[in-house]
Simulated scan of single mutants.
Amino acid sequence: MPRYALKIEYDGRPFSGWQAQADQPSVQQAVEEALGWLDPGFAAGARIAAAGRTDAGVHATGQVAHADMQRNWDPFRLGEALNFHLKPAPVAILAVAEVPDEFHARFSALERRYLFRLVARRAPVTHLRGQVWQVLNPLDVDAMREGAAHLLGRHDFTTFRSSICQAQSPVKTMDEITIESLPLPNGQEYRFYLRARSFLHNQVRSIVGTLERVGAGSWKPERVKEALEARDRAACGPVCPPHGLYLSGVSYPQDPFADRESPG
């Protein structure tokens, strides 16, 4: 059975998250139903595996999944066929690559990258509605960067971990937290780029929600370090909403999509 890696983009708003659920729409279900039109295995209930199980309302620009098919496909044609059958769901296959059997979208991943988009302005957003978290007042980006520096490296992130997180250990290594400030009409957008081998459940949203409190002046930057060292969920700032969060990329020992032409 040939194995294919899929690079997937989606708008998370209509879905209960990535993972298939019996009574709720999911991105996984949408992709598997499209595969079911093309492959008897998926028509009979075969499953795909993804690099990250994004929550309800979370978007992706670089999710990766793998699928085992019963027939051989040209990767480009498979991507085109999937995009045809995915319509009108807001899900797109950006690239497809045939990969060796030992490739696993989740377990082969070396790191995951997330982007969080936060907009500060008084007027409601229109074009970005459902795609960013909006606050009313400008934030101090330098203070947020100072606070974020305390989270870099290997730490026990219990404070920034959901109470229902199923990870075996709260210890993670945060390799990057970069914050950019970009002008918008009558406002400002702040983009948070986070990179790590893996993340705890709600870790990114907990970190960004905490840093927003720093940027708003409600927290001193050093309070982020105190919250981290408390190893207590109660010490965390508010968890920000999901609709500003994007799974933006996944890295592997060898990029399966290198030099791949995207399907139309």
Rank of each mutant, 00 (worst) to 15 (best):
S162A: 12
I164R: 13
T173G: 01
M144D: 12
S181V: 13
P170I: 07
Q168P: 02
Q203T: 11
F160W: 08
D156A: 06
T126C: 03
V204R: 00
R197V: 04
A148K: 01
C165S: 11
D156H: 11
G153A: 10
R145D: 09
L128F: 04
V171I: 15
Q166R: 12
I164D: 14
G147W: 11
P183Q: 08
D140L: 07
Y190F: 14
Q134K: 05
R161D: 00
N186L: 08
R161N: 00
S198I: 06
T159K: 07
P183F: 09
Y190T: 01
Q168C: 03
L136V: 02
A196Q: 11
S162Y: 01
L136G: 03
I177V: 15
P185I: 09
L136Y: 02
A149I: 10
I179S: 08
L152I: 15
T159F: 05
Q131A: 06
L182D: 04
S181K: 14
L182V: 15
E180D: 15
S162I: 00
D175I: 00
G147C: 07
L128I: 00
R161W: 02
R205M: 07
G130E: 01
R129I: 04
S169P: 10
Y190G: 03
S162W: 00
Q188T: 15
N186E: 15
L128A: 10
D175R: 14
P170E: 05
V135M: 03
Q168T: 14
P183A: 10
Q131K: 12
R197I: 00
F157E: 02
L139I: 07
N137Y: 14
T159W: 05
S181Q: 15
D140A: 11
